[in-house]
Computed example of a mutant assay.
Amino acid sequence: MFFMKGSPDEPKCGFSSKVVEALKGENMSFGSFGILTDEEVRQGIKNFSNWPTFPQLYYKGELIGGCDIIMELSESGDLKALLYLSK
């Protein structure tokens, strides 16, 4: 699940846009939630993850990371391996 500003079709920040591009570049399907639409969910996710910023990518209920981490994983090829090998 990808918690982001905006939607995959219309990201509302550059960081969300970069992660969407990385995920689509890996041909990964993913669900998303636009955190700007619900302040309660936004704050709840921040508290749950102990991560103050968005976007946030989760896999099997675990926080993978934000934009910088996802971009590093994508560039190294580890994002695809992490998500596909842990199925």
Rank of each mutant, 00 (worst) to 15 (best):
Y58A: 01
P11M: 04
N50C: 12
G34D: 15
S32F: 15
L57A: 02
P52Y: 13
A22D: 03
Q56E: 09
I35M: 06
Y58E: 03
Q56R: 07
K46W: 12
N50Y: 12
L73N: 05
A81D: 02
G14P: 06
L57G: 00
L73S: 06
F15H: 04
E62Y: 14
V20N: 00
P8I: 08
I70K: 02
M28N: 03
S76K: 12
R42Q: 02
D68Y: 05
F2A: 04
E62H: 11
G14R: 10
S49I: 12
S7P: 03
M4F: 06
E10L: 11
G61W: 10
L73D: 02
P11F: 05
S29L: 12
F48G: 07
K24W: 13
D68T: 10
A81W: 03
M71E: 06
L57V: 01
I64D: 07
P11A: 01
K80S: 14
S7A: 04
E75Y: 13
F54Q: 01
T53N: 10
V19P: 00
E62P: 04
L36P: 03
P52E: 14
V20A: 02
K18T: 08
F33I: 10
L73F: 05
C13Y: 07
E26V: 12
L82F: 07
F3C: 09
G77C: 05
L36C: 02
F2D: 05
M4I: 11
K87M: 09
D68A: 08
Q43W: 12
K87W: 08
M71P: 00
K5W: 10
K12V: 03
F54Y: 06
K5L: 07
F2S: 07
G6S: 13
E75Q: 15
P8E: 10
V41C: 07
F30I: 09
S86G: 04
E40V: 03
F15N: 01
T37D: 14
G44W: 12
